[in-house]
Each structure stands twice: as C-alpha cells, then as structure tokens.
Amino acid sequence: MFMAPPATDIAPRDPLLPRIVRLRGKRREIRGVWSLEVVAEEGEPLDFAPGQFSMLTAFGVGEVPVSVSGRTRDGIGLVYTIRAVGAVTAALCGLRTGAPLGLRGPFGAGWPLEEAAAREVTVIAGGLGLAPLRPAIEAVLAAGGRLVLLYGARGPSEILYPADLARWQSARRAQVEVTVDHAGPEWHGHVGVVTRLVPRARFDPDTALALVCGPEIMMRFAVSSLREAGLSDARIFLSMERNMKCAVGFCGHCQFGPHFVCRDGPVLGYDRLAPLLRIEEL
C-alpha cells in the first residue's frame, strides 16, 4: 500500500548538502504565486515521482520544502510552484533567470499511482494543492486511466494552471469540475466550496482512488464528503504538510503521530491518518 522512499538520494552523499541547480525560467501563475523551472548545472535530468517534494535553498536566506509540480517541457528539469509568503519563498520567487539555487531531494512517498493507473482516480484539490497533484493527473491520463478532478480555488483569478485545466477538461476519460469560493457576476462556472462537487463526481466508490491535497481543513471536509459518497478510508490519500527542516527523518519537526511526514509521507493513506486527524494540536 505504502511506497518505500525512493533511492534517489542515498549515502554516501550527505543528505543535508544541497546540490547547485539553476533557475532556467519562471512564470507568474496567479497573484503572489510563481512557477520556477529548475535544471541541473551539468544538464543531467532531474527525476522525481508525483507527490514528492524537494528542499529548495535561496542562498543567504534559507531553505523550504516545495512539492514538485511537474517536469520542464524538455523533460530534464523540474517545476516548482511557490507562493511567496515568507522570506525564503519570497526570495525564491524573486530569483532571476539563470540564478543558482540549492536543491535537495526529491524526498518522500508520492501518490500511489501504480495502484491507480489501472483504475479510476478522483482528485480533489484546493488552492495551491493542485500543484503536487498536477504530475499525478498527467500520469493518470497518460496511462489511460479515468480521471475525475474537482478543483476549488478562492476566486476566478486564483485558479491555478488554467491552460492545463482546459486541456484536461477535453481529455476523453476525464471529468473536470472547477469551483470557486466566491465570484463576480461574470463567472459562469460553479461557485461554492470544492466539497459540494463531490456528489457530481462520477466514480465507482469500489474501484476509485481519491487523491486529495489542499489546506488541512479542506482535506478533512473533502474526506467526509468522499466517505459519504461511499469511498473507504483505504482508498483516500492525502498529501500532508508539516514544518520540515531536514526532509530525511533526522530533525523531528514533521512528526504527525508515528509518521515522519517527510519520509513516510507527504502522501499518506487516510486509513492511517484518520485516528490522528481528529486529535487537536497533534
């Protein structure tokens, strides 16, 4: 059920030592959110599994965990979508093209796509939570799986990856529904929280897997809607977020009950999370 940490960064390399990579390009996605294209200095491909994250260093400022949100078009680099909220994320988003930055990872257990590929996948994403799910969505569609994507954003101007959403919408085996929490009168799409879309989703609760990423409270609401729709806990996967410093299980910060979110997660099955999510301040 549970993916072993990938052997992408093993001894003898010091797991706490970043490698130098370069910002090849960046684009503003929505207000305050940038996507960075990162390539290795030596040009060798950077690899990852959908759902994994990396530690990015803005030299002189600090280091933060960021989910990988895709590959560069030529396949050799990785894309990170970052909201500039703190000193480090603001510095990363402010880097100029060609600037060096530090990269560790990718780390952690990603989405259970081996299981998912053959079946149908229901994705529920909220806000920037679409970023770590984008590679999973691409993988499901590439593998010919059936995709239901329910995506919620705060408002029409904060919908991430509109071009990708349009492309996925036109995919043959996909149902893509986008909703916003509130909108102006020019918006003709859904208005309401993302969980209100769950009853509209066409999936078979006995075979579908649900992949959920967004703010923790939104994920809790989403899980409750998915369970009402008949999905069992073992079929629901959440991407968890906690404070992280080392990403390799040394620093202790990201513990969530028995799990190191960095190493055992960030993607964890709801069957393992359920007893923990109900505990306050865990």
Binding site: R154, G214, P215, F221
Partner: peptide, 17 residues
C-alpha cells in the same frame, strides 16, 4: 450540507496568511 459548506467557505482556507 449547505451549512457545512458555508462553514468551510467562511474559513477562507486558500488565502495566504
């Protein structure tokens, strides 16, 4: 259901801090 959805909507969860 609408009350529950309103509760989530009120939380405005997608906003940056």
């Amino acid at each position: 259901q609408r009350l529950r959805a309103t509760r989530l909507q009120l939380l405005d969860v997608y906003g940056a801090p």
